[in-house]
Write a protein that binds this DNA or RNA. Sequence first.
DNA 1: CGTTTAATTGACCAGTATCAACAGGAGTGG
DNA 2: CCACTCCTGTTGATACTGGTCAATTAAACG
Lengths: 231, 231
Amino acid sequence: MQIYVAATSPDSSSFLARGASDRIAQDREGDALEMLGTVVPVRAGAEIYGEGDTATAWYRVQCGVLRTCKLLPDGRRQIEDFLFPGDFFGLENRGEHSFAAEAITAATVVRYSRPRLTAAAASNSRLAARLLDVTLEQLGKVHDRLLLLGRKTAEEKLTTFLLEMLDRSPDGDAIDLAMSRTDIADYLGLTIETVSRTFSMMKHEGVIALPSAQHVVILDRDALEEMSGDE
Amino acid sequence: MQIYVAATSPDSSSFLARGASDRIAQDREGDALEMLGTVVPVRAGAEIYGEGDTATAWYRVQCGVLRTCKLLPDGRRQIEDFLFPGDFFGLENRGEHSFAAEAITAATVVRYSRPRLTAAAASNSRLAARLLDVTLEQLGKVHDRLLLLGRKTAEEKLTTFLLEMLDRSPDGDAIDLAMSRTDIADYLGLTIETVSRTFSMMKHEGVIALPSAQHVVILDRDALEEMSGDE
DNA sequence: CGTTTAATTGACCAGTATCAACAGGAGTGG
DNA sequence: CCACTCCTGTTGATACTGGTCAATTAAACG
């Protein structure tokens, strides 16, 4: 099983006081947040919580890959996000979860009880700022996906997806896809057939190589970026 | 010009301490947030900030209707949200705004300088909790739109949109659309032609009436809800 | 009123979905 | 070790939703 490195770029405009804005350092030193969490192991394919379950906690991925998804009554599915080590999920203030969270690979997650989090944030302003930061980061990410889902073509969606996965991959030009074609399709608002066909097309054009269905090698990153529609 | 009433349903699972969770009452009494804001009038069509502008403040709509939108280099546009009185916008922690904010009608917005907000939140835990709540609410709203953009049909998108507008309308069964067909199309990931055709179809089926392009009367709410795909 | 812009409607087209067949690997049992 | 099965992914043929281009109507504004 591959290990993904969390993308934790320090953000200069963070809501944290300047000297404390380096999240990586903070993670190492073990801040207030770390004291509150409970480590929970999850089997591959298992559900951490379902859509509609009472939301009692926030979570963070320690290792493994997960997905959060939502269903329409007739079974159509939308994957909200793929989650890698370092990612938070379950961030909601509604009474119940509006997405389900499921483990794609075997995983470990850290569980932060919401009442405890609320109480701790009330007396620790740095923790409160941190929670806000995490939430704002998620919001920014989701915003980008609106444009992708609403306005991009299949080819643009898939190249954007690959570049995104590449950013989170330890390797510079190879991606180990932990998720199935179905997951990718439901993430991008496409069908598995279109995902597969678009992969094949990119392969034939020499932009990527596909040693196996799960293993993607980027051959021409520039071309990929051009195809993503973002520039 | 029509006046919209902000949808401010108290949320029992708020991050605010229980006795203070009624946002409506809070707004009336004038909390810490109110002290920090500057009222800014905006002309119809004017831009409050552009995509890529340095993000220096958060905002809240006092009156009028605005939109936040994002462009692809080739001109394709995605509207992130329509904003009505009471709505917050500009909530970001990246250095620059990832969406532009524009006034659809003449409007007044309240501007909250970010450095001042950060400082105030650091010493006022109730304000910090409030900011987190506002952000989480936005996150929840955007999540619902992912499913709409990724998996719903044109008809489902438009009925969902109408029900959404109806919820925010002062009237029980009539909607005054402040935005153009182009705006609606860019909000739902469709073209103006498809929006127009779908409206016509719904009119012919007797689900809605269209006394004018801007005025929609809901004739059969149940049918509309059934058509939205959500149940 | 005439002019301009927004919305509607129509004809046609394209991108993506659907339906269906086939191929490739992984696991299982003989 | 090979054959069989199952499952996932790929490829092909065809259909259809929604997009594009164009013409018409309606509304807004001077």
